[in-house]
């Protein structure tokens, strides 16, 4: 299939017809956006790869559910958002099983930071504080403030109402402010 000339919809149709190469082309087209979003949540490169693969595998096996009314990118990013939320909840559960002694021995809780970047003490503190939010708050604040998405976009990605997103963002900002205040 002449992938360069094909639209996402044509590639989806080809993939549904059994052309796995067409799905590979879809993945190649949209991986940067998916990686960009997931990297805001994944704690390390292995988790990033796992989550991104899970996103595309879920898309592959649910391709028939893709409604062509909205672009494929919206659909894949919605799946990515759900996967990130699942990941945050799973991490929270795992942390809950760690005893307080373990935390002390580790020298405190280290939140899942994005991929290696230019270290900056203020940003480290921000990521540290974001890591202490609840999964829902963290999801909302990351999409709104770090990914620079609108309330409507966050609502579409999460499936929560705009009002709900607003309330969670307000609470998250208040929590972050409290967490960062003593350190400044």
């Amino acid at each position: 299939m002449a992938a360069a000339e094909s639209s996402d919809e044509q590639l989806v149709a080809a993939a549904l017809g059994g052309d796995s190469g067409a799905f590979g082309e879809l993945a190649a087209r949209h991986k940067t956006r998916v990686f960009g979003l997931v990297s805001r949540f994944a704690g390390n490169a292995a988790d990033l790869e796992d989550i991104c693969q899970d996103v595309f595998i879920q898309a592959y096996f649910n391709l028939r559910q893709f409604r062509r009314e909205s672009p494929f990118e919206h659909w894949i990013l919605r799946i990515a958002t759900y996967k990130c939320y699942d990941y945050l909840r799973r991490r929270k559960r795992e942390r809950a099983t760690v005893t307080s002694v373990d935390v002390l021995l580790e020298g405190g809780y280290q939140p899942a930071a994005p991929l290696p970047r230019t270290p900056h003490p203020e940003l480290e503190r921000l990521y540290d504080a974001i890591g202490k939010l609840t999964p829902k708050e963290r999801l909302v604040i990351t999409l709104l403030e770090l990914e620079d998405r609108s309330l409507q976009e966050v609502s579409r990605l999460t499936g929560w109402s705009v009002g709900n997103v607003k309330v969670r963002a307000f609470r998250a900002r208040a929590s972050l402010h409290k967490l960062l205040l003593p350190l400044t």
Partner: peptide, 21 residues
């Protein structure tokens, strides 16, 4: 500042579709 510093995922993305398929 955090928005300006987007994580660089180019290395992680390399040959992703091959691994996926």
């Amino acid at each position: 500042r955090a928005r300006e510093q987007r994580p660089d995922t180019a290395r992680a993305e390399y040959a992703f579709e091959t691994r996926l398929l």
